[in-house]
Design a protein around this nucleic acid. Structure first.
Lengths: 228, 228
DNA sequence: CGTGCCGTTGAAGGTTCTCAACCGTGGTGG
DNA sequence: CCACCACGGTTGAGAACCTTCAACGGCACG
């Protein structure tokens, strides 16, 4: 995580366009930089909507239901922007999978400022829609797919986002534990482990240590993901 | 469905603010009005991203996975704006639950025009974020909740959106079939039926005919929904 | 080198699915 | 107006998939 200037990073990645210094200054005023250790939670005031820019590292967005059940709603990596609503039906939290640096914005002020620059607003919209479409695909998986299909989908998605292409395959260095994967796919850690084994036996993946996964044939894995 | 001027309706409901006539004219140019019978699908060109404004009626947004499995990703009612991505992992379709009139916009041009008015853009953003947060809550339900909790959540959500408050309870006139509810909650129609029965026996709901559901005690139902 | 957490593997149990038959409602045609 | 038909919904029994509970293994850290 070579990241010592989160706000610079934010400007480079989110607005992606030059803006009046006045707007930039106002954004900087409301940005609260935080640095979170692996396993710790990004400090959020849960009574108000927030935006969090992930400047470096990796995070999981967790929703808590009753009975201590946790569902990971999304993973977010470097340069992602996360929208976090105030608690309603479920309570949301953002946890670091690795040492993470981030900027926390109050949603109201953030949106007001961003809206004053049309280009900013458009980019924000684009990112929100991407998040929405990802969330829908996740919903399809959670609602209608078998354990094997869910894990295969997970691999394909992660390959797109944080994979290092390698011929027809891909090398993945997963920052999340098996439990996290389970909490994301709506499965238990044991089921995840068994499906890892099943894909390994099928010769589609190889695991090295706890974090490294080599995907040998992404099209073949996508075939097992139950996509159209 | 008292709706004979979809575009007027759109202007009243989405931008919610006066705009230069030039912008309005450009929007009208790209809006394709459609009228869809109950059970039919809104005609979409699946090769490009779209926005659909529901001027009147009720719809389900369906995602198809392999093997003919369908997951309803969201229900949309009067004055809702739906974002529909081009087919990627899953193929999306929008079906009418009742006679529906709608406006179909190509996403690219729609976003370009909307971005030229900061106020429009802000409202669009707000709606996208609402959709995202709803989708996340749905994901929690699909990933981590029992059949009873899912149906209770469904009732609470529908009560908020299309219910007629009635003392501590609410009258619901559901436009969707048991199959639709099942496809939305990731359950089979038989399980839905059994959970209806279970809530009925518990004295929390009453069903009249096929579509009317009376919720007697929403707080009590919310308690069974597994919310925090 | 020891310890603790994470991951793996096995067996038993539960919730939901599948398959099947039945019922009731609403709509249609005689 | 009534009878019939078709569809949507209900109910029951058995099977499947995943979970739960439990024990073991192994890598990474102190």
């Amino acid at each position: 995580m070579a990241d010592y200037l989160p706000f610079e990073n934010f400007l480079r990645s989110v607005p992606r366009t030059t803006a009046p210094t006045e707007v930039v200054r106002r954004l900087e005023t409301i940005a609260k930089p935080v640095r979170v250790a692996r396993g710790a939670s990004v400090p959020l005031e849960s009574s108000t909507d927030l935006f969090v820019f992930i400047s470096g590292g990796a995070t999981k967005l967790i929703a808590s239901a009753s009975g201590g059940r946790e569902q990971i709603v999304a993973f977010h990596f470097e340069n992602d922007l996360v929208s976090i609503p105030a608690d309603t039906w479920h309570s949301y939290g953002l946890s670091a999978l690795a040492e993470t640096s981030a900027l926390v914005f109050p949603a109201n002020e953030f949106l007001n400022i961003m809206q004053s620059e049309p280009a900013f607003c458009g980019i924000l919209l684009e990112r929100s829609l991407t998040a929405l479409h990802r969330c829908r695909d996740k919903a399809v998986g959670l609602g209608r797919k078998s354990a094997e299909e869910r894990l295969a989908s997970f691999f394909v998605g992660m390959a797109e986002r944080i994979g290092l292409a390698n011929g027809g395959g891909c090398e993945l260095d997963l920052p999340m534990s098996r439990r996290d994967i389970g909490d994301s796919l709506g499965l238990t850690i044991e089921t995840i482990s068994r499906q890892f084994g099943s894909l390994r036996e099928a010769g589609l993946i190889e695991t090295v240590g706890r974090t490294r996964v080599n995907l040998f044939d992404i099209p073949q894995i996508a075939l097992r993901a139950g996509h159209i």
